[in-house]
Design a protein around this nucleic acid. Sequence first.
DNA 1: TTCGCCATGTAAAGGGTTACATGATTGT
DNA 2: ACAATCATGTAACCCTTTACATGGCGAA
Lengths: 184, 184
Amino acid sequence: MSLKHGLLGLLNYGSMTGYELDKIFRDSLSFFWQAKTSQIYRELDTMECHGWLTSERIIQNDKPNKRVYTITDSGKEELGNWLSMPESDIANAMRVKSAFLMRVFFAGETSTEQSLEMLRTYREKCMEASKGMSAAYDAISKYRTVVGNDEKSKYWRIAALYGDAFIHAGLTWADKAIAVLEEK
Amino acid sequence: MSLKHGLLGLLNYGSMTGYELDKIFRDSLSFFWQAKTSQIYRELDTMECHGWLTSERIIQNDKPNKRVYTITDSGKEELGNWLSMPESDIANAMRVKSAFLMRVFFAGETSTEQSLEMLRTYREKCMEASKGMSAAYDAISKYRTVVGNDEKSKYWRIAALYGDAFIHAGLTWADKAIAVLEEK
DNA sequence: TTCGCCATGTAAAGGGTTACATGATTGT
DNA sequence: ACAATCATGTAACCCTTTACATGGCGAA
């Protein structure tokens, strides 16, 4: 249900095309939500049918034509409603769903060496992701100057801090796990 | 794709009914994978069609009849194949998908007090989840004695350690976030 | 007598991924 | 010459959730 509300949230900052929304998702929101381009276009379509958005087609000569989406009052109302009832999402926030941990759980079926390799690869991915977060911080700073609202960007940074915390936790866990497997 | 492999992994320890598999998922795997009862039954069905499992219906008088599933050689092969190619799951392990963080990101549209309340509720859920983990450890100990294999249960504990690390990271992040919003 | 455990499923809807299709302009 | 950016979508498939349906046994 949250892709719709993420799109509403972004369009609430200003009118945009599907392409631009897709880029923002990739640049700034991808550390807590991923959506395929095709899905974003489809959602925008159904949201327009719901009356949450209107769209206007802009003819361009030098570039492909584009469709600019604008949030309606009904859309703003929906965004407000969603923000006012966070209970179920807070409850679900605790749930990890990780195929990787499923593998760890069943790693006893493989060799210790294979398991260690998996954990070392995971550790490397954590390091990469850690570097990737600075790109997200950059994007947030960029959009802060665009939107020009420090109150809002404060929450963006708080969300990004979660990304850091999560990555860091993964890293120290991997070290611990590797140590357990290496001992004796 | 991993529910199938989780079920294969469990049936590799021994034959079981859908009901028992469902319970194990709930008791021991729920901190990294959740599946609805109805989905488990449906997956077992399609897995049997794939030839990964066979099933035998047991007639009971005092209790409802049941269907016991047994992994086949083809199923063991599939499990082995899956375990031997962890790359894509490691890559995805970094990805959080959290409607809660989506809310945090857009919390600038609500009041500071509302945002604080949300974070405090989240913090409480972390505390609850922390207590919940000890139930998972208990379940793991119980199954260790049943399966009687310390090498395997080692990995179960490593997976559970991730749960702890994740919850702990959430808790300290929440404290930090609350502090940021309370200052000034 | 009410609650929880045992035990299995079906049907429909919703959300997400993969594959495909198009095609000009701008930069290296 | 080649890659990246701009810009939009459709179709099919897969996975997950929600709602519904059934019903006996034992313990408090």
